[in-house]
Design a protein around this nucleic acid. Sequence first.
DNA 1: CGCCTGCTGCGTCATTCTGTCGCAGCAGGC
DNA 2: GCCTGCTGCGACAGAATGACGCAGCAGGCG
Lengths: 179, 179
Amino acid sequence: MTIHVLVIDDDPTFNAVLSRALTRRGYAVSSATKAEQALSAARAQPPGAVVLDLNLGSSSGLQLIRPLLDIAPECRIVVLTGYASIATAVEAIKLGATQYFAKPIEVEAIVAVFDAPEEFEEAGEGEVPSDPLSVGRLEWEHIQRVLHEHEGNISATARALKMHRRTLQRKLAKRPLKA
Amino acid sequence: MTIHVLVIDDDPTFNAVLSRALTRRGYAVSSATKAEQALSAARAQPPGAVVLDLNLGSSSGLQLIRPLLDIAPECRIVVLTGYASIATAVEAIKLGATQYFAKPIEVEAIVAVFDAPEEFEEAGEGEVPSDPLSVGRLEWEHIQRVLHEHEGNISATARALKMHRRTLQRKLAKRPLKA
DNA sequence: CGCCTGCTGCGTCATTCTGTCGCAGCAGGC
DNA sequence: GCCTGCTGCGACAGAATGACGCAGCAGGCG
């Protein structure tokens, strides 16, 4: 039976490229660029798997996880984001996502999640790294954690970190460094 | 009723410092530096909370999560590691850890996890830490820890941190910033 | 003992980042 | 409608960084 995958990303080009790659690998694919559109699509045809970006214009992909699981409790949600952080990874998994990846990532890694058997706890992918985080990456993770605790309030986060708001905004606007 | 916290880290100095900080905040604390010792301690006195490092000599702290939850199903496990990655964060939460933090982190963030009400899925996490580390202080402590692990070798530390050696030397030459 | 490798301290320069200032618009509360 | 706080962002002076590289030292090895 063909798995139906719903791809949710605010970038139509990204949706098209990923959809094509998944179709080529035998999946039935649909896509959405907005939160409401995604939920409507899921209700119309409950997906077996979802690829979910976190930046969806003004809303956060995190807020879609529970509604998606309400509609399709067995579906596997792979979170994919260009602004990956440990804080949002922890929250996504607790909300019920199956996996969380930083962009860019190979399509094979995504489909491996779809095809994995139930309860694959010992995936081995969670090797503890041998290198510590770089200073830039540690800063990014720290900022993201404090921002998360302040519920996205940039002014409050800047005050808590004793950093100028302008500087914080510049840092947040950049893609995070590779670990 | 006093919460009993088990601190598991291979660095005895870190154990002592964190144990003292937690004792000062009203917790009953015990600690272990090895996996087997940790499990024995947990069986002897099932903890209400655990602070768990991932690097435990030759073994991984990830492998302790399930056994610890078998012994004390309700306990909250906070993973704390100097070698953080999104992949191990995902795996830790799936294995049943309550939270995952990169070192260094303020003690308040750890105890906020212990004290949070059940099922705090939304981002507020019960309470916002009053005073997170500033970015400068975070960087200083991270550098010091990695330098210590490289036994004072500045060149190796710079490589591990992916930082230019000149820059590291300038940073080390400065007084550490106030938190 | 000379050679080699790696570590270390440090000056210099072009580039990048930061702190500061502040404008303008939006949202929410009263 | 007013006020407060948040937000995005441009511009500028000063600080920091990455890069380069010199010079000296220590330890290992033949």
